[in-house]
Design a protein around this nucleic acid. Sequence first.
DNA 1: TATAATATCGAACAACTTGTTCGGTAACGA
DNA 2: TCGTTACCGAACAAGTTGTTCGATATTATA
Lengths: 187, 187
Amino acid sequence: MDRRQRKTRQAIFSAFIELLSKKEYSQITVAEILEKADVGRATFYAHFETKDYLLKEFCEDLFCHLFDAVSDNEKEHAHIFNCNSKDNVFLHLFSHLQKNDNNLLRLLSCANNQLFLQYFKSNLYNLVERELDKTGDNREQDLPKSYRVNVICACFTETVNWWIENGKKQTPSQLTDYFYKVAKIKK
Amino acid sequence: MDRRQRKTRQAIFSAFIELLSKKEYSQITVAEILEKADVGRATFYAHFETKDYLLKEFCEDLFCHLFDAVSDNEKEHAHIFNCNSKDNVFLHLFSHLQKNDNNLLRLLSCANNQLFLQYFKSNLYNLVERELDKTGDNREQDLPKSYRVNVICACFTETVNWWIENGKKQTPSQLTDYFYKVAKIKK
DNA sequence: TATAATATCGAACAACTTGTTCGGTAACGA
DNA sequence: TCGTTACCGAACAAGTTGTTCGATATTATA
């Protein structure tokens, strides 16, 4: 990718983040993004078909990085973020969230949180499914597997949401503790 | 309220429901609503400040009816829907949903479901809190009460969501059973 | 360094959307 | 019956979206 393209793309993403933390997604206009990113109108549309596509690509970038980091840790027990390799995946996720990687928290706690939580949840699904398979947990309860996975995802998401809305007072390991209590997953 | 006002309001709501089940909320224009409702532009804006206010009032109408019905049942053990008064509130809610009162299911299962699930959840909060107080459940676990309530709401909402997305195969009492298993509320 | 490719600019553009205004008409409640 | 008020419809300004174009600057590459 051309350096100019990278720069433009980054400028647009940065402007977008800043605006998102101030106002609702639907209230943001392309003109505002252009001004803040200092980018021409035609250039914007050369990168993104519409504002919705900007959001989509933006979220994909964001969450891919987060979940890739977690998955890498799972496989190689060591990755770019230098986490404790013995962490379980959920503690790991909570830790990344606390470290505020990629301004993720800023987005999850703004007025647009529902939008991001949605993306967040869908990324979570595979992770939870893998975790359940690993522990053989789902056989113990007389519940459809997809139901159990969905509920656990919802619990995790709600844990993050609650944590943010209540001032982020708990540590990642406390959150993990809470989460395991309500989700009742085998350790 | 003037009969003309009632009729106009209802016409707009109906048009809105129909459009919502076909396309995304953000893609719906006021002009489309006007055409389907057969109502003048000025009239629309005499009723609702903006499209967002239309959504807000619409949701309030919708969920107030549902949750009022449930609350009434709780208090008086008999209400307009002629439900079994011995039902617990959650079974009661699932039953109403299955009966498709007020086209709620149509809305909860369309592309805009997140929009409504959000409203749904906020209405659920008080209900769950009351239920926990009644059973004294929250004292048993070493978890903040607001956290527990939020998680239970999320579980309920996710149960509904999962049920709809998987073809509504379960009965209300099965759903209640599932829900109690994952939420672990005292009966 | 020279060259070809291409990303950006900026300005203008049509099409559409939003929310308001206003005089005339019809339906309503009392 | 009569005064009130909701509705109509048409027009309107302001703002937004997405496109087009030629000119300019940056880039990768040979």
